[in-house]
């Protein structure tokens, strides 16, 4: 197997999960647990695909997917933040709504092909013999996802707004007492997470596959949730987790193609088994870094 191709395909298969996971990490940092990532991803996948096919522009497709993901996540936001519904139940509901909505919209698009997103060869760096093709000759979304990770890291770590967001997530009562608008900050974080999940979904339908089939995200949203736990709510950890997972997926697919003696089913279930294993190892060490108010409803009593 060509190592250059291997690295390229790992990066491609990691990008959707990376996008969804970095968004969800921001949401959880603000103290909200949105289990609807899968629903927002699949909605992003179908909206991105539909818009890209309709306009012929993949970039417009990505933009539309982000808007769709954010819009859907705001339904979750209104329910959990204003109507104080249970976050676990509402997140599950969001996933079910997203799966139904996407199947409904997508039924007209089965079998079509999306316009392809051109590769962006970075001048000079792209000319380096092996590394150039391996790392600097991807489509624009791969770089965007990496930039997003860096931006999220910098935002949470270095800016005042990031500090406020973390404060809201750690202890919403105290943040409220200090005069911060807990609900508004959380809604912004939820919308950001939805937009990221939508982008991740669109990457699956526009670049990775690139086609629309019903239920095509196949649990990527749930794996993104697991990666946030794996990462202990740190941006760098999310990056490592997503790329590790991308690696497992690609190796598993290559083994299937190569026709090993292992049954196909064992190989296809391996990413999920490895995710469980990783979750167990992380939790056995004791969960570190979960925001203090994660999953709790906030209602200002006065």
């Amino acid at each position: 197997m060509d190592p250059v191709l291997l690295v390229v395909s790992i990066m491609v298969s990691a990008t959707p999960i990376l996008l969804a996971a970095i968004g969800e990490m921001v949401v959880e940092k603000s103290g909200v647990l949105n289990l609807g990532v899968e629903g927002m991803m699949i909605t992003g996948a179908v909206m991105g695909f539909a818009i890209a096919v309709g306009t012929g522009s993949p970039l417009l497709g990505f933009a539309g997917a982000a808007v769709a993901g954010a819009a859907l996540s705001l339904c979750f936001g209104v329910l959990t933040q204003y109507l104080l519904s249970n976050q676990v139940a509402t997140g599950l509901g969001l996933t079910l709504v997203g799966l139904g909505l996407s199947a409904l919209i997508g039924s007209n698009y089965e079998g079509q092909r999306a316009p392809s997103l051109g590769r962006l060869d970075i001048p000079l760096l792209g000319d380096i013999p092996v590394l150039g093709r391996m790392l600097f000759s991807h489509d624009v979304m791969v770089y965007a996802s990496l930039a997003l990770v860096a931006a999220v890291w910098a935002f949470l770590r270095l800016t005042r707004a990031g500090l406020i967001l973390r404060a809201v997530g750690e202890d919403h009562e105290s943040a409220h007492a200090l005069g911060y608008k807990v609900v508004r900050i959380r809604l912004a974080a939820i919308a950001f997470g939805g937009a990221c999940a939508g982008l991740g979904g669109a990457y699956v339908s526009l670049v990775r596959v690139p086609q629309w089939t019903e239920g095509m995200t196949a649990g990527a949203g749930w794996i993104a949730l697991a990666i946030v736990v794996f990462a202990s709510w740190r941006a760098l950890g999310v990056l490592i987790g997503a790329y590790l997972f991308g690696g497992v997926t690609v190796i598993q697919l290559n083994l299937q193609a190569a026709g090993t003696t292992l049954p196909v089913e064992i190989l296809s279930m391996s990413p999920y088994l490895i995710t469980i294993l990783v979750l167990v190892i992380i939790s056995a060490r004791g969960v570190h870094g979960a925001p203090g108010s994660l999953g709790r409803s906030f209602h200002a009593s006065s």
């Binding site: 109507l83 969001l94 079910l96 709504v97 997203g98 139904g100 039924s107």
Partner: peptide, 20 residues
Amino acid sequence: PGASIQLFQGMLLFFLLATD
């Protein structure tokens, strides 16, 4: 479309959680 009923069921849960 067959999927619309799936959406219908999901909406039901959403409205229930909202009115709750």
